[in-house]
C-alpha cells in the first residue's frame, strides 16, 4: 500500500468515525430526527399552516427508495468519472502525471 492510498483510507475512516462514534456513544437515546422536519413541526405547533402542498408525496418506503436512487445516481456517475480518469492515467503511463505514484 502506498503512502497516498494509506492517507486516503485514513481520511475515509475519519469520516466514518465522525458519524459512527456519536451514534455509539449515545447508546440509542436520541431520535435523530431530521432538522428540516424539526423546523416545520415547530412552525406548525406555533400555528402556521402551509399554504401549498407538494404535488407528489411518496409514501414512507417509496421515499427512502427514491432517496437511495438519488444517492445511487450521484455515486454511480462519480464512480464512473473517477474510474475513467484513473483508467486514462494508467493506460498512458507517465504521459499525464509524471508523478511517482504508480
Amino acid at each position: 500500500m502506498t503512502r497516498r492510498t494509506l492517507v486516503n483510507a485514513l481520511l475515509l475512516l475519519a469520516v466514518v468515525a465522525l458519524f459512527a462514534v456519536p451514534l455509539l456513544l449515545d447508546g440509542g437515546t436520541s431520535e435523530y430526527g431530521g432538522t428540516d422536519a424539526a423546523v416545520t413541526e415547530e412552525l406548525e405547533a406555533e400555528g402556521y399552516t402551509p399554504w401549498f402542498d407538494p404535488l407528489f408525496s411518496p409514501a414512507g418506503e417509496v421515499e427512502s427508495g427514491l432517496f437511495a436512487l438519488q444517492a445511487a445516481l450521484g455515486g454511480g456517475v462519480l464512480g464512473y468519472v473517477l474510474g475513467r480518469l484513473r483508467g486514462r492515467r494508467t493506460a498512458t503511463p507517465a504521459a499525464a502525471t509524471g508523478a511517482g505514484e504508480q
Binding site: 432517496f67 437511495a68 438519488q70 444517492a71 445516481l73 450521484g74 455515486g75 454511480g76 456517475v77 462519480l78 468519472v81 473517477l82
Partner: peptide
C-alpha cells in the same frame, strides 16, 4: 463529477 458529488451528498 461535480454535479454527482452534490447529488449523492445531499441525499
Amino acid at each position: 463529477a461535480a454535479g454527482a458529488f452534490t447529488f449523492v451528498l445531499s441525499a
